[in-house]
């Protein structure tokens, strides 16, 4: 499996101000790549660079097999983009909006009609196909904008905040659709502020603040920042067992809070039986054992709080 997107030192400055600095990523085909960062971090600029909407100040990128700046028309044919704002023609109907873009993407009249119908049906907009988009809800507009990005069947999709401002039901529909697109083998570059969404959808996550702060799978990011660990719930006070845990050579840190004994361990899966045996040997009555789980929000806040250091 090759890379759908590769960037090499991709940089963009605006009047001397750096928006994107020395971005180096390789995104394998058929994966969902989450691009997280605070407002103004340069996420939208990165999407615009990779979709050949703006040119880099330095560095280069290969997207869907096309080098930036070499044949941008071919690159644009190979990518679909959901922009920050849906940007639809409000007086035109859903079908007219999509047909216009299908023809701009060089689809023949017949194929354009088929693709428009296919995506309007898939996104449950077929019944409203001839209504002006101005009468649509925000969720319907967002779905229509996603359909527009898919008409020409691009292998690479850029989704900029696809669920921003949507009600939970509409957001769920969009997320399910993104998951479906992934199963179809498309590569998805997803920018979002919705961290549970990124956790759910993304194979790889990059935290970005003008430059790449950290990149990895959600699990790698968690363990890289917080280490692995185990929580043991004990009947009664857990404090007497802190010393027992500290005495074990593989326990790097231990703390107690009521019934909860939290332990940082190098390799929990291998060491947990030994740990439990030691605790029970010391008289502990164990209710249950679970891994320490940090949310992606913890990871994000830690990384962004470091200011990219």
């Amino acid at each position: 499996m090759g890379n759908a997107i590769e960037t090499h030192g991709l940089t963009r400055r605006f009047d001397g101000r750096v928006a994107v600095e020395d971005l180096n990523v390789a995104i394998p085909e058929g994966t969902v790549f989450g691009f997280l960062g605070p407002n103004g971090a340069g996420k939208t600029t990165t999407v615009r660079l990779l979709a050949a909407l703006i040119a880099p100040s330095a560095g280069d990128a290969i997207v869907a097999g096309h080098r930036l700046g070499a044949d941008d028309d071919a690159l644009r044919r190979s990518v679909g983009i959901l922009t920050e704002s849906p940007g639809l023609y409000e007086r035109l109907s859903a079908r007219q909006n999509l047909t216009y873009f299908a023809r701009l993407y060089d689809l023949t009249t017949g194929r354009a009609a088929k693709q428009v119908e296919r995506y309007l049906r898939m996104l449950e907009l077929w019944d409203r196909r001839d209504d002006p988009v101005g009468t649509f809800s925000k969720g319907m507009r967002q779905k229509l904008a996603i359909a527009r990005a898919l008409l020409h069947e691009p292998p690479v999709l850029f989704l900029d905040e696809p669920t921003a401002g949507l009600d939970p039901e509409a957001a769920r529909t969009v997320r399910d659709f993104v998951a479906l697109l992934r199963r179809e083998g498309r590569t998805i570059f997803l920018t979002t502020h919705n961290l549970p969404e990124a956790d759910e959808l993304c194979d790889t996550i990059a935290v970005f603040q003008r430059h790449l702060v950290r990149v990895g799978t959600p699990t790698e990011l968690r363990s890289g920042l917080f280490g692995a660990g185990t929580v043991v719930r004990i009947v009664g006070d857990a404090r007497p067992f802190v010393a027992v845990a500290h005495a074990l050579p593989f326990v790097r840190d231990a703390g107690a809070d009521g019934e909860r004994l939290s332990l940082r361990i190098d390799d929990p899966e291998a060491r947990n039986p030994e740990l439990i045996e030691a605790l029970m040997g010391a008289g502990a009555r164990i209710r249950y054992v679970e891994p320490i789980r940090h949310s992606l929000e913890d990871v994000y806040l830690r990384l962004v709080g470091q200011g990219g250091k």
Binding site: L53, V79, I81, G87, L104
Partner: peptide, 9 residues
Amino acid sequence: TLEPLLATP
């Protein structure tokens, strides 16, 4: 609407 338009070839 200009950004999606300019994103087409």
